[in-house]
Design a protein around this nucleic acid. Sequence first.
DNA 1: TTGCAAAATTTCAACGACTGCAATCATGTT
DNA 2: AACATGATTGCAGTCGTTGAAATTTTGCAA
Lengths: 211, 211
Amino acid sequence: MSGEGGLRARKKLRTRRALVEGALRLFAEKGYEETTLAEIAASAEVSTRTFFSYFAGKEDVIFFDGDTRLHRAVELIGSRRPGESVVELLVRAIEQSLSARPSAVGLDPVLGPVQVRLIMTVPALQARALLLLFDSQQQLARALARAFPGELDLIEASAAVGAIVGASKLAAMTAVERGDPPELVYAAVRRAVEVTVGGLTTLDRASRLTG
Amino acid sequence: MSGEGGLRARKKLRTRRALVEGALRLFAEKGYEETTLAEIAASAEVSTRTFFSYFAGKEDVIFFDGDTRLHRAVELIGSRRPGESVVELLVRAIEQSLSARPSAVGLDPVLGPVQVRLIMTVPALQARALLLLFDSQQQLARALARAFPGELDLIEASAAVGAIVGASKLAAMTAVERGDPPELVYAAVRRAVEVTVGGLTTLDRASRLTG
DNA sequence: TTGCAAAATTTCAACGACTGCAATCATGTT
DNA sequence: AACATGATTGCAGTCGTTGAAATTTTGCAA
């Protein structure tokens, strides 16, 4: 057992990274559907069969860093500060998720945007991402209810998490699809959080003042 | 040209229904993954190849009644009543969606619950459903922004739709997974709408009054 | 009624994702 | 140096999906 985990483990890690990087590169070059599993395996110099001992399927290569963000968010919710309110805690969680930039350690930084573009572009990946996000929300709701025992039931916690995440998600996607630069995307999320925290009625008041 | 649309069209409709019903029955009996496309096609007495001239893929049979609900919701948003507020309009849309029971005309009523159970159970179908819902939300947000020209920008409309749908979705799923009967599921959605409309701060106030 | 053009169905071949299994190879240990 | 264990591989096979060509069915007109 030398280094961290022995030669065996280190080799596995290297192969794994090679698979991810090779896949991302190929996807960027030729497109997701057009890239074959055999090509990905070849790019990492393993057999097609071996690919499946690293990932459950083609889609999974993209989500190699899947639950990193989630775990931190759940932990944050779990470590509620004394006297902290539901809103304060949720807002803190959202802010943390937004500021978490580095997706994976030791991965070519050029490949980060590729991953994002693929997830937003390829329907199969989009669907998978939404599923992962949904499961995350369920865990967050449970964590939130646990953080406010006797004050917040599971339904209310679900409503709170679903509202703030749902609003952020749709607002962000709208901004992105519109071609907004990153700053405006963040601004959109902040506005979404504002609306969710203050309630949809604030939109009505705004329209009355304007009209 | 007898009946509605001629013999040709009527036959196509019958085959389509046969495919949907046969598929749902088989899925209920043997499970989704375990059911083969060949079996589905055979149950409707067509060749496997022909299946694909009715549906784009195996998943699509389940979502045969896909955009019915959506279209009505978009129309409802589009026909804003004079003086109606954002909240009133959105709440009306949610209520309409909840009360829309009959999923498909002329389909064996036993198969409705089967469809729901499959969508909630099979990951691939769950993911697909979330994708469809996401696209729906984008359309709803556009419709909402259009209904309040000059008062509501696209980002705010997205935030509003995302919040109310996201809260309803997660609250409903939480209730369902907990085993709540339909009435309690509706109650959960109503509570979610309430929280979203009033704002998440109402949860803080509640906790302060209680604690 | 017959005949023809368009539309629908079928057959066939092929590709890619994925899985089980048995054989082989590498690694870490005694 | 030999062994046990785990990783990798090749192979055969299933299933979803697609393209193309051949065949059948239907709608319509003469």
